[in-house]
C-alpha cells in the first residue's frame, strides 16, 4: 500500500511539473506582455524605456531560462506579484481557495446525496415510471448549460421573486452567518443541479449491475428483506466504482465552479482564474491554474485511496487477501 501510494504521489507530482511547463509556455503565448500593458497605460514610455524594462524583468531571456527563474523563485515561496490585485499572488489566492472549497464542498455533498437517493430508487424500480422519471431528470441535468441555468436562477429568484441575492458573498457592510448562507444558495443550487445527473446515472447503473450478482440472489432467496438486501449487501459493492467516478469528476466540478463563480461574482478560484486570464495578469493566472491542477490531482489520489479502502479484494502490496 505504502509503495503504491508513493508511486501515485510521484506520478501526481510529475503531472504537476509537466503542467507547470505547459502552462508557463502557454502564458508566453497570451496576447501582449506586461511591458506592452505598461506602455499602453503610460504613453510617455519610449521604446528604449520598454527595452530597458524588459531586460529588468528578465523578459528578454529565452523561455527556458525564464521558466527556471520562475521555478526557483516559486520553490522558495515567492509566487510573484499580481498586477490586477496589486498584492502578492499568494495573498489573492488563499481567500479565493477557501471560498471555492466551501462552494464545491457543499455542492459535492448535496449532489452525491441526491445521486445516491435517486440512483438507488431508480435501480430498485427498474423499468417503472419512477425509474423513467429519474432517468429523464438526470439526462436533463447532464444536458443543461450551467451558465444558462445560472442566468435563469438569477432571473427567477433574484429578479422576479427577489428572494435571493444574485452576486457576491455577503451584504454591503457585512452580515452574519445567515446572510452569507443566503448568498451561497443560488451558486450551490446551480452547481448541484449540473453535477448530480451523471452521478445519478452512474449510481443507478452500478446498483443494477450489483443487484444482478449471485450473492444478491442468494440473500434474497434466504428471505432477506428488500431493504436489507439493498443497504447491507448491494450498496457497499455498488459504491466501489461510484467512488472513483465521483472523484474523477472533480475536474468537471471545478470547470462548473469557474462558470458559476464568474456569473454569480463569487470570489473563488474559478473567477480568479478567469479574471487573471482576461486581465492579462500572468503571474496570477499561472499560479491559480497550477493550484487548480494540484487540487484536481489531489482529489484523484484521494479517490484511489478510497477505492483501495473500500474494495477488500484489492491490496496494492500484492501479498494480502
Amino acid at each position: 500500500m505504502a509503495r503504491y501510494l508513493l508511486d501515485r504521489m510521484v506520478q501526481s507530482v510529475a503531472v504537476l511539473a509537466i503542467m507547470s511547463v505547459v502552462i508557463f509556455w502557454l502564458m508566453g503565448l497570451m496576447p501582449g506582455d506586461p511591458i506592452d500593458l505598461m506602455i499602453s497605460a503610460d504613453p510617455r514610455l519610449t521604446p528604449e524605456d520598454a527595452a530597458r524594462l524588459r531586460e529588468l524583468h528578465g523578459l528578454d531571456l529565452p523561455i527556458s531560462e525564464r521558466y527556471l527563474n520562475w521555478l526557483t523563485a516559486a520553490l522558495s515561496g515567492n509566487l510573484g506579484f499580481s498586477r490586477l490585485f496589486a498584492m502578492p499572488v499568494l495573498k489573492a489566492v488563499l481567500p479565493a481557495l477557501g471560498n471555492t472549497v466551501l462552494l464545491l464542498g457543499i455542492s459535492f455533498v448535496l449532489a452525491v446525496a441526491i445521486a445516491f437517493l435517486s440512483g438507488i430508487a431508480a435501480a430498485m424500480n427498474q423499468h417503472r415510471k419512477l425509474d423513467y422519471a429519474i432517468n429523464l431528470l438526470a439526462f436533463a441535468a447532464i444536458s443543461i448549460p450551467s451558465f444558462w441555468l445560472a442566468l435563469m436562477m438569477i432571473s427567477l429568484f433574484s429578479v422576479t421573486l427577489g428572494w435571493l441575492p444574485a452576486s457576491g458573498t455577503e451584504s454591503v457592510g457585512g452580515g452574519g452567518f445567515l446572510d452569507k448562507a443566503r448568498f451561497l444558495v443560488l451558486p450551490v443550487l446551480t452547481l448541484t443541479i449540473v453535477s448530480f445527473g451523471s452521478h445519478t446515472r452512474f449510481v443507478r447503473a452500478s446498483m443494477i449491475e450489483t443487484l444482478r450478482q449471485d450473492y444478491i440472489r442468494t440473500a434474497r432467496a434466504k428471505g432477506a428483506g428488500e431493504g436489507r438486501v439493498v443497504f447491507r449487501h448491494a450498496l457497499r459493492n455498488a459504491l466501489i466504482p461510484v467512488v472513483t467516478i465521483l472523484a474523477l469528476d472533480f475536474g468537471f466540478l471545478f470547470s462548473g465552479a469557474l462558470i458559476i463563480e464568474t456569473i454569480f461574482a463569487y470570489p473563488g478560484m474559478g473567477k480568479l482564474i478567469f479574471d487573471a486570464i482576461m486581465g492579462n495578469d500572468y503571474n496570477l493566472a499561472l499560479v491559480t491554474l497550477l493550484f487548480a491542477t494540484a487540487l484536481t490531482l489531489f482529489c484523484n489520489l484521494a479517490a484511489d485511496l478510497a477505492y483501495a479502502w473500500l474494495d477488500p479484494r484489492i491490496s496494492y502490496t500484492g501479498d494480502g487477501a
Partner: peptide
C-alpha cells in the same frame, strides 16, 4: 489518464485566449 485528471475548462480558456501571432 493525465488529461482526465486536469481541470479542463480553465485550460481551454487559456488555449482560447492565446495569441495566434505568437504561434
Amino acid at each position: 489518464d493525465g488529461i482526465i485528471a486536469l481541470p479542463l475548462l480553465p485550460l481551454l480558456i487559456v488555449l482560447a485566449a492565446i495569441d495566434l501571432d505568437k504561434l
